[in-house]
Design a protein around this nucleic acid. Structure first.
Lengths: 155, 155
DNA sequence: ATACAATCTGAAGTGACTAGAGGTTCAAGA
DNA sequence: TCTTGAACCTCTAGTCACTTCAGATTGTAT
């Protein structure tokens, strides 16, 4: 096993993309915003990734799937890079995030209710109607969550 | 009551914002993207809105709160402007949207489960840990929704 | 008359990518 | 060795629904 053979695990960006389920463009984007450190390059300037990169990108992917912001992930990565720090911060991020998720679920539920009500009143039948959906949207007074917008659930 | 007195219900943008709960900048944005028709102006070029505008903006606000896209709202508004058209399209938009909402709820629920699990394993206690949260994020294999990303729930 | 809040326009920034143009490199088959 | 053609490169701009900013103007109360 020569020095050169140690490079066998080195893969181009397309393979990394396949292995992690992250698109090629997104990988380059992550490098740009400094989530993923710049990898080695071939003489022809193409990126070649090692096992460390695969792991780190998997970490990022998983955290993104869980809805953590890129900024939170940056913090989480810093923590995982320096294991001597206490993990209180990681715990705080997760708990805060769990709170947000629950909040979103609650809002979406009430949204679901109202959409059900709205969609049910006009069943979209053959007869034209002074459409109940449009009326419902025009007349805010019928609706349950009268006091505050629900739009936050979408951010 | 002279002709001029008919303008009494006419309000500047700040008042419209207060009445509808939509920010001033957002109102101008809605005008720019042609959701809200351009209002009259004073001699000094300031916007003055009438009752029609208040109603239309309330419609838009309500629909946005319900998570309809600006594009869907444009269609909905066109429909409400021409009541002779059948409302099938409005119904279709609502039903599709309801489907999306339910999808999001389902995804967020499975997310909630995993975050609960992750946050519980490391309770952020006094002892430093080889942080369980970070481990959980690094090791995708422990997680339930192994086969597909959940990130869509955030869009 | 003056102060000052409200309004105006236009451009740029946000987050987290995605898409496209136009060019270069790599690896496999002939 | 040469030739394809897929994969790669950089850079720019676009997406959505706003938000923020700078710098100028207008409306209104005292």
């Amino acid at each position: 096993m020569s020095d050169r053979k140690n490079l066998e695990r080195v893969v181009p960006i397309g393979v990394l993309a396949e292995q992690t389920g992250v698109k090629v463009e997104t990988i380059r984007y992550y490098e740009q915003v400094e989530l993923l450190p710049p990898p080695e390059r071939t003489e022809g300037n193409q990126r070649r990734y090692g096992r460390r990169h695969v792991e780190r990108l998997a970490f990022i992917k998983h955290a993104r799937d869980l809805g953590f912001s890129v900024d939170s992930i940056r913090t989480l990565l810093k923590l995982s890079d320096s294991p001597d720090l206490p993990c209180d911060q990681a715990h705080a991020i997760s708990v805060a995030h769990l709170g947000e998720v629950r909040h979103k679920i609650a809002r979406l539920r009430s949204l679901e209710k109202e959409l059900e009500r709205i969609a049910a009143t006009c069943s979209g039948g053959v007869n034209a109607c002074d459409c109940a959906i449009i009326e419902a949207l025009a007349d805010h007074s019928q609706c349950a969550h009268h006091q505050g917008g629900v739009a936050d659930a979408w951010r």
